[in-house]
Design a protein around this nucleic acid. Structure first.
Lengths: 346, 346
DNA sequence: GTAAGTTCTGTAACCGTTTCCGGTGATAGT
DNA sequence: ACTATCACCGGAAACGGTTACAGAACTTAC
């Protein structure tokens, strides 16, 4: 029980070098796939590497000017499935390049100066993927001066030159609204998230666009605000809409949580979904298939966004010329059971 | 557009030292909170640190014998909410210590030799949290010789000496079964996950224990196997049970996914939940509150497990004597709408 | 006033890589 | 035979910290 834990010393490049009878420089060259090594030397080195079970010390490599092989990922809530999926995409893409993700949960501590964010990573990571960052466009621009990163799903519009990957919010919202219109709905309400988030304004645009194209006059009373969560705020918003003198026959919620909240609120007041009220969500989260009725929603290619962010970042790191700094991934309407033709109003 | 990205050079310990008029050794001491520094020297150093916006290079620190400040977390699927929550707990706990999580998704590539796993981390991380690892007890034991880690929710029974944190599976299962029994159910079926997983065998134990205590003879026909997912396998298992000549009046599914699958299967054959069939899950995932009817289930303290794993690991790293190597966190039955008194069989 | 402590600080040797630069042989060109 | 070229390899200087050790300054005890 008094055993003192003494971890085996790991093989170093010097050990490999002497075992292979070459210099450490040569070993390094072999390890990094440099071309200027004679085939049999290379072979000998590789053999020694294998025998010693050697693997290069990332810290030393990083220190000596190279790469860390680590990229930071900041996200608001790790446990939210939404971010989990993006994270998973990013992580896999990185893994394929033998790189790793360092998690940096931003526990809403934007109180400190900006440098907080970058300090977290500098020297430790080669770059970062910022999910839904709280920083302003200007702050990010400043950070960009000395740290490569890409933003996934920005909160606010970011100025030119900041790499961004996001979903086609407007198109998705438009598709959702058109779907509802095609079912005969005319009074179509929307419940947005935080109104200053660009995702929301774009979705509103799509919603308005579809309405306008169908010759339906948008009614400001039909737009409510919630907090993207299935909670009291959503319940209030839903109630407000359903209490309208001329209530909507369909509600387009800007994410699935809210849509599910709406369905509950509807049920609570005796409305049947989709017979009396059609509901559409956004995200296509795992929940969407599980609720009853299953939810018609707009799928965001979350994992793909993660992968895309990584591949963009990687190109940035290689200092490759990147011409497309802003990537929008297509969204897709998934029709399930929560939408149905509008009842003819009598 | 041809701008060559040149990141600002970051401040080093030497810069700080000369600015403060001391040696680098002193700066290092201050930074590491060593006691043997005169108060005003310390003050001067800290001022210089602040002025230069210095933060220590983790790689250099790690290289020169210290700690990385990084701990690896391996998990099967990042996107699964289940792991996301544990991860979130671990990540926060680490964050509070100014440490970070390095994600190591194990994409089921257990093909390579064990060393794969450890090689991934050695030198890069100080230790690891292994979630649901695929490695055998022996493999882990070997790894333990030179790498500190703690296992969360092991797949198989792990030999003495390997630090483990898990949930009280047996107690949870027992509570769930007792709940069903107290509602008058006597034919209570169970749908397990992979039967060799310790979580499942323990839950089976709890289930059998409760049955026995109530004087109910366990019927092997009432135990089905699924894969922890809400998919065809679960559907088959549910069908098998419900097709029994003397079918169960309650089904205890060993996780929420399966429970939800069971509810669907029941609905599909015209059974009402909970009137005709009570269903209990395990996990208390986000879904449990969302489905209709809401799911009675056993809550696992997922986030807490993550935090606990970290605090255990941290103590291991400090080489503190750790007397409780195996931690079981209590589970808790959450009663919702998917369970109801058994119908009197006629 | 000196010896012995204390308390603080500086010097320098690492940690394990990468990479610049220069050196060796061998081959080719004249 | 002499040099230019080339492919390959080694020496050694970084990289930015930590820390053992020794030295300086300052007390304290006699």
């Amino acid at each position: 029980m008094t055993e003192i834990r003494q971890h085996a010393k790991r093989a170093t490049i010097r050990g490999v070098a002497s075992a292979a009878g070459v210099s450490i420089a040569t070993v390094s060259r072999v390890l990094n796939g440099r071309p200027d090594v004679a085939p049999n030397t290379r072979e000998a080195v590789l053999r020694a590497v294998r025998e010693q079970g050697f693997s290069t010390n990332r810290n030393a490599r990083a220190l000596s000017g190279g790469r860390t092989g680590l990229v930071g990922v900041t996200l608001p809530l790790v446990e939210q499935a939404y971010f989990g999926v993006i994270l998973s995409g990013a992580s896999e893409a990185l893994y394929e390049q033998d790189m790793r993700v360092v998690l940096c949960p931003t526990l809403h501590q934007h109180d400190r100066e900006v440098t907080l964010l970058d300090r977290l990573m500098r020297g430790t990571t080669d770059g970062a993927v910022l999910m839904l960052p709280e920083e302003s466009s200007a702050e990010l621009k400043a950070l960009q001066r000395d740290f490569p990163f890409v933003v996934v799903d920005p909160r606010v519009a970011l100025e030119e030159g900041i790499p961004v990957v996001s979903a086609a919010h407007a198109a998705g919202a438009r598709a959702a609204t058109e779907h509802l219109l095609s079912l005969g709905h005319r009074r179509i309400a929307a419940i947005t998230g935080p109104p200053d988030w660009i995702a929301c304004t774009e979705r509103i645009n799509g919603y308005h666009g579809a309405l306008a194209a169908a010759g339906v006059m948008p009614d400001p009373a039909l737009v409510a605000v919630s907090d993207f969560r299935n909670g009291p705020v959503t319940a209030t918003a839903a109630t407000k809409l359903l209490d309208l003198p001329d209530p909507p026959t369909a509600i387009f919620a800007f994410n699935d949580n809210v849509a599910i909240g709406v369905m509950r609120a509807a049920r609570d007041r005796g409305l049947r979904v989709p017979e009396d009220l059609s509901v559409v969500g956004f995200d296509d989260s795992e929940q969407a298939e599980i609720v009853f009725p299953t939810l018609t929603t707009v799928r965001q290619p979350l994992a793909e966004m993660g992968r895309m962010a990584v591949s963009l970042l990687l190109r940035l790191l290689e200092n490759q010329r990147v011409d497309a700094l802003r990537i929008q991934l297509a969204t897709k309407l998934v029709v399930r059971d929560s939408t149905a033709p509008a009842l003819v109003r009598r």
